[in-house]
Design a protein around this nucleic acid. Structure first.
Length: 431
RNA sequence: GUGACCGUAGCUCAAUUGGUUAGAGCACUGGACUGUGGCUCCAGGGGUUGUGGGUUCGAUUCCCAUCGGUCACCCCA
């Protein structure tokens, strides 16, 4: 066999690519409209950046990172998520001097060494949005509303559920107090938990909460609820967030078991889930990470953000027929019959292209029938559903004319070469 | 990392209990049609049956290993 793509990565072929462009275009439109600015980041960073932000105890850091030494001996890692790099840039370039909140988004490939599966790849793509320097609950609500708006514009919102939760913060009377209580309860019932959860009790007890195994569920149903242990500030923040969401008209459910996999989350966490993607039900997820920026050596700014899994979104999008592209751009197929006609058509092709038309030029050697046949099979014809053909042979050239043929109907007429460009522009190249 | 199922042409699939030269449709190229397409007909190019080993007179078929794919666990977007 010849060389194949590396395991877990995939090529996005032209047909599928249309969906990607749509997702990215709508993302930019929506995020821009909420005042976010695009930032472009490197896809690899120093390894310690991820180790410090994501958490040493997480699966991502322990076994999923693409880490290697570069030729200078530095340990670098292909980014497994975008937040760390974005915060690094935020601090490095002093973006925090601007009025808060600083609203940024980025998009691109992420890398995690995992066993590929439906909706899960080793190179996958995320849209990543972060708002830094503002801890007001209205920002949490706005961000979730914006995320829902993005999916509404894709006509997917009704197929998704918004789940939110609050993880509290690290003040002693808040999450730590709950953690102590939870560990006590879990230890007391350890014999009824799965093996994995028993280990997690000591390492990362909160993660036990979203174990899906029935045996664990039975224990967890009676476990103390984090919501009951939130400190006054966190409870108020969560309450306000929900009020603002309701005021904005964003339906959501509170999921007490929604505990996200990265260590840095606190207070608001949220996920958009679907039942249509097999085991990978999260299409987007995010949360608040107050304290993380300071941990990286920056100012004590709070932050909140989310990531959208582009592959999963694309999978939810229906296949579109040609009508989706019809009228968006137009196609013209120029058919020269021979060398001289070809030379005459080349500058015309470029004039049309500069006006926004999609133009294909034959090379003048194939038979006319073949060229017309090919015109029907061009990607432009399939996707645009429209095409005008221009036929220019020696006879027409001698008379200073060309034939403009509408491919769908097969009707054609003769136009002077001098007016050809204007004629096609007036037609819009459309059928 | 664990488990299950699956690997035949670019794509979708055939190939009798293991039996000669592995076929078909679609797609592609050319011809019928020396300047008018979407139909039809004909022809052609394309395969070390994922790879390596084993059993056998003989393997696409049976066995083992390996690589890859798919799905699930795990985890997450």
């Amino acid at each position: 066999m010849t060389i194949r793509a590396v395991r877990g990565v995939h090529d996005i072929l032209p047909g599928e690519g249309e969906k990607w462009r749509r997702v990215e275009r709508i993302a930019r439109d929506v995020f821009d409209s909420y005042g976010y600015e695009e930032i472009r980041l490197p896809i690899f960073e120093r390894t310690e950046l991820f180790a410090r932000t994501i958490g040493e105890a997480t699966d991502i850091v322990q076994k999923e990172m693409y880490t290697f030494q570069d030729r200078g001996g530095d340990s670098v890692t292909l980014r497994p998520e975008a937040t760390a790099g974005l915060l690094r840039a935020y601090i490095e370039h002093g973006l925090f001097v601007h009025p808060k909140p600083i609203k940024l988004y980025t998009m691109g490939p992420m890398f995690r060494y995992e066993r590929p599966q439906a909706g899960r790849y080793r190179q996958f793509h995320q849209l990543d949005v972060e708002a830094l320097g503002d801890e007001h609950a209205s920002l949490d609500a706005e961000m979730i509303a914006m995320l829902v708006e993005f999916f509404r514009r894709l006509d997917l919102a009704q197929r998704l559920q918004v789940e939110i939760n609050s993880l509290g913060d690290e003040k002693p009377e808040c999450r730590p107090r709950y953690r102590t209580e939870l560990v006590r309860y879990l230890r007391a019932n350890a014999d009824r938990l799965c093996e994995e959860c028993r280990e997690r009790i000591e390492r990362n007890p909160l993660r036990v909460l979203d174990c899906k195994k029935p045996e664990c569920r039975r224990v967890l149903d009676r476990a103390p609820a984090l919501g009951d242990f939130l400190c006054a500030d966190c409870a108020a923040h969560f309450g306000k967030t929900r009020e603002y969401l309701e005021a904005t008209g964003v339906p959501h459910v509170v999921s007490p078991r929604l505990v996200r996999g990265l260590d840095y989350y606190m207070r608001t966490t949220f996920e958009l889930t679907t039942t249509e993607l097999g085991a990978q039900n999260a299409v987007a997820g995010g949360g608040r990470y107050d304290g993380l920026i300071k941990l990286l050596g920056g100012p004590p700014d709070p932050g909140i953000g989310f990531a959208v899994g582009v592959e999963r979104v694309v999978q939810l999008l229906p296949d579109e027929g040609p009508e989706a592209w019809e009228g968006r751009r137009v196609g013209v197929f120029l058919i020269p019959l021979g060398e001289e006609p070809l030379k005459r058509l080349l500058p015309i092709a470029n004039q049309l292209r500069s006006k926004g038309l999609v133009v294909e030029v034959g090379h003048g050697e194939r038979k006319l029938g073949r060229e017309l046949e090919r015109a029907n099979k061009l990607p432009q014809a399939k996707r645009l559903g429209v095409l005008q053909a221009v036929i220019l042979g020696p006879d027409e050239l001698a008379r200073g004319e060309a034939i403009v043929r509408e491919l769908k109907s097969g009707t054609q007429r003769t136009v002077p070469l001098s007016g050809l460009v204007d004629e096609l522009l007036a037609l819009g190249g459309r059928a």
